[in-house]
């Protein structure tokens, strides 16, 4: 029953995948790593040669020493921040996604709530954080709320754009197939929005850590934010630097997790 011979499709073969040579990949890792090591060496040498006091700028070896000696302390403060950031990440993004869905389905809801969302977004997070700590007390809740708040707006905007990114022709196709609203949502709109959602989640993966730490600055006895404040006031600079590296490590961890999830899910 086949009408076309097997070799008749020569005219429209896709271009062959351009495979990167492995030396390229090696260079991609080696160059930035080499640069980072060089900078650390310059930093170490500079601190030693000019005799900079440790409380102003500790040498990299001092910071590494603190990582070893104060590891239990660092980890004790890592976990609360991790939990706050992660919970805030889920709560904030979940709310943003649900509200984006409501916006796309109802022009009225969008008209009613979008200006409010924009207004909340214009309040600097540093200004609103003390209010939230006053409302929710010194426990984890306030930090989760701050982390959630900081994630919320970029995800809302991206998700709305993603859900609306379906081409008019695809919607016409859906109409010709007499697809219902829910079929259009689940089979077309939601998958279309995933690349947009993931680019928002990658932003949120780093900002939620900022939110948790800002919350801890204002009132907390545990967490990386609290440790940053404490070690600053006690002139324990190597500990301060180690804590800062821990914080950025947490961001990298969350960012990498989202990127891996994106690669597994968005394969088109």
């Amino acid at each position: 029953m086949t009408i076309v011979e097997a070799d008749s499709a020569k005219a429209d073969e896709p271009e062959a995948d351009s495979k990167k040579p492995s030396s390229d990949r090696f260079n991609n890792i080696a160059i930035p790593v080499g640069t980072a090591i060089a900078l650390l060496v310059i930093w170490q040498a500079g601190v030693r040669i000019f005799g900079v006091p440790q409380y102003i700028a500790p040498a990299p070896t001092d910071v590494m020493g603190v990582f070893a000696s104060e590891f239990p302390l660092l980890m004790r403060n890592f976990w609360p921040t991790f939990i706050e950031a992660l919970t805030g990440f889920f709560v904030g993004n979940m709310l943003a996604v649900l509200i984006a869905v409501a916006f796309v389905h109802s022009k009225f809801v969008e008209k009613a709530f979008f200006p409010i969302a924009v207004f909340i977004n214009t309040i600097p997070i540093l200004a609103i954080a003390p209010i939230l700590v006053l409302i929710f007390g010194p426990g984890m809740t306030a930090k989760v709320v701050i982390a959630a708040l900081i994630c919320f707006f970029p995800t809302l905007v991206n998700m709305v754009r993603g859900l609306q990114s379906v081409s008019p022709q695809t919607l016409e196709l859906a109409r010709i197939l007499s697809a219902s609203k829910s079929e259009i949502f689940w089979k077309i709109r939601l998958p279309s929005s995933l690349p947009f959602l993931f680019s928002a989640l990658k932003i949120a993966a780093t900002t939620c850590v900022i939110g948790a730490i800002v919350g801890e600055w204002i009132g907390a006895n545990v967490g990386l934010g609290a440790l940053i404040i404490e070690s600053t006031f006690n002139f324990r600079s190597p500990l301060l630097y180690a804590t800062v590296f821990m914080s950025s490590g947490l961001s990298v961890l969350l960012f990498a997790s989202v990127s891996i999830a994106e690669r597994l899910i968005v394969r088109w």
Partner: peptide, 21 residues
């Protein structure tokens, strides 16, 4: 107007999956 996340076969099957409601 193919759905980019669906394989060729899954795209061809789309009309069989929608519209029943």
């Amino acid at each position: 107007t193919l759905l980019p996340w669906r394989s060729a076969l899954k795209n061809v099957e789309l009309p069989l999956e929608v519209g029943r409601k």
